[in-house]
Nucleic acid binder design. Structure first.
Lengths: 247, 247
DNA sequence: CCTTGACATTAACGTTACGTTAGGGTTTAT
DNA sequence: ATAAACCCTAACGTAACGTTAATGTCAAGG
C-alpha cells in the first residue's frame, strides 16, 4: 500500500494529480483510512500505469476513462481516431512551421527577392500541381479544360500571363492597408477575376472557393506566403466582400 | 465603421472574440458610441488581420500583444523561438503517432509476431545505434569498451544473447500484472542486470539511467513498444524500486 | 406611435488538467 | 512534547473564448 506521495514518486506525477484522478473518478484509492488518507495497492499502480500511458498520447482524461471503463468499449476505434487527429495536428504544425519560416524570411528584408523567385511557385511545373489539386475540389471536366487551355498557350504567352499575375498580386499587397472592403482592393479583385479567364471562367461561388483554397491548401498557401504572409487571407476576405456585393 | 457583427463576419470570427480582445486590450474599438456600441474603423480591421495571422501560428494572445505592442519589441526573436517550440511539438507528435501505431498493431493480436521481428530492434545494426545513443548519455570510454566487447562475440553467441534478452523481456511483461514492486519483477530486474554484463557493467545509478533512457529515447522506446506499450515504463519503475532497495 | 426582429451590451459560468496557496489535522522521529 | 514531514479539503487561477441570461437599442413596417 502506497500513500499519495509514495505513489506519486513511483509514477512520476504530483500528489495533486492523484487527488484529481480521484475526484473525477479515474483512479480511486484501493482503500481510504479512517483519517481520510488515500492508500493505493498494486492494482491501482497498474491502472495508473495504463492511465499515464494513454495520457502521454494526449488522450483526454475523459476518453481514457471510457477506454478503460467498460470492457466492451472500442479501444481500437478510439486509438484509430486519435491517430487521425494526431495526423491532422502534424500536418497543421508543419504548415505553421513553413509559415513562420516564410514570415521570418520576409522580415529579414528579403524584399530584394526577384520576381522570378517570388513567383516560382507559379511556374509551369507548379501549374500542373495546381490543376491536380484543383481537380479534387472542383468539377474534373472544368479542370481538364483548364489544362488544355493552358497548354495551348505559347511559352511567351505563358510568361506574360505569369507576369500579369505578379502585378496583380503586388497591387493587391499594396492595397492591403486599405482593407479588404476598400474600393482599391475590390477593383483588384475585379482584375484578378478577369485574369483567371486565362485558365478557366469560374462563377461567383467558384471564385470564392478558389480564394478560400488559397488559404486551406498548403501548396497554394506556401506560394502566397512567399509574397506576403497575409496575402492569402486578405484575398479570401476581399473576394468574399466582392462576391457578396455581386449577388 | 463596422459594428461587432459586421467585423466578425468580415474577419471570420465571432462577436465574442471581439469582446474578448477588447477586454484584454488586444483590440480596442476605434470608437464607442454613447449607447455603448463598439465601432471599428479601417485601422482596427488591419490590426485584426495581423492578430489573426499570429493567432493562426498558435501564438498566445499575450505574446501577440507584445509582438504588436511596442515597435522595439523583438519580433524576429519571438518568431524564432516560436518556431523552435513548433518544431518540438512536431517531433513529439510524430513520436506519439508512432506509439499509437505500435499500440494498434499490438492490439490487433500481433502476438503472432515472431521473435525475430519482435526483437529486430535489437539486431546487430540497431546495436550500433544503441551504442551511439548511449554515448551521449554515458561515459564515452565505457561505451567504446562495450562496443569492443560486443564485436568480439561470435555470431552464434550474439544470437544467444539476443535470445536471452527476448526471454527476459517476455518474463518482464508477464510480471507486469504483479506490479513493479513485486518480488517477481524485482527478480527479473536482477536477471536483467546480470544480462547487461554482456555489454558492460553499469553501477546502480547507471542502471537507473539506462532504464529511464528506454522511455526518453524515441529509438529505444519504439523497440520496447513493439513488445508491449508499457514495458518501458514498467522497466523504469521496477528498476527504480530495485535501485532504491539496494542502496 | 408602437411593435417586432435583429443586433447591441454586460455579467458570469463552463471548459481542461492540474498548480498553487490556504487553513488545519496526523504521523513519525527526536 | 515538539517539530518535520505528510495528509486532507476547499477554492481560486490558467487560455481563449462558447454559451446562456437578462436587458437595452435600432430600423422597418403597420
Amino acid at each position: 500500500m502506497f500513500t499519495v506521495k509514495q505513489l506519486s514518486k513511483l509514477a512520476g506525477v504530483t500528489p495533486r494529480t492523484l487527488h484529481h484522478y480521484d475526484e473525477i473518478g479515474l483512479l480511486k484509492p484501493s482503500r481510504v483510512g479512517d483519517n481520510g488518507y488515500r492508500y493505493y495497492g498494486e492494482d491501482a499502480v497498474l491502472r495508473l500505469q495504463q492511465i499515464l500511458f494513454y495520457r502521454e498520447l494526449d488522450i483526454p482524461l475523459d476518453d481514457i476513462k471510457k477506454i478503460m471503463g467498460r470492457r466492451d468499449y472500442d479501444v481500437m476505434g478510439a486509438l484509430q481516431s486519435h491517430k487521425e487527429s494526431l495526423n491532422k495536428q502534424a500536418v497543421r504544425i508543419n504548415r505553421l512551421i513553413q509559415t513562420v519560416e516564410n514570415t521570418i524570411e520576409h522580415l529579414k528584408g528579403t524584399k530584394t527577392m526577384t520576381d522570378e523567385k517570388l513567383f516560382e511557385g507559379f511556374s509551369e511545373e507548379e501549374q500542373e500541381k495546381y490543376a491536380q489539386e484543383a481537380e479534387k475540389m472542383y468539377d474534373p471536366e472544368t479542370v481538364r479544360e483548364s489544362n488544355r487551355k493552358w497548354k495551348a498557350y505559347s511559352a511567351a504567352k505563358k510568361k506574360a500571363i505569369l507576369a500579369e499575375s505578379s502585378i496583380i498580386y503586388k497591387d493587391m499587397i499594396a492595397a492591403m492597408p486599405k482593407g479588404a472592403k476598400s474600393a482599391e482592393a475590390q477593383a483588384i479583385v475585379e482584375r484578378w477575376r478577369a485574369h483567371m479567364d486565362y485558365f478557366w471562367t469560374p462563377n461567383l461561388e467558384q471564385l470564392l472557393e478558389l480564394a478560400k483554397g488559397y488559404n486551406d491548401d498548403p501548396k497554394f498557401k506556401a506560394n502566397f506566403d512567399k509574397m506576403h504572409p497575409q496575402l492569402a487571407a486578405f484575398m479570401r476576405d476581399a473576394v468574399k466582400v466582392y462576391v457578396e456585393s455581386k449577388k
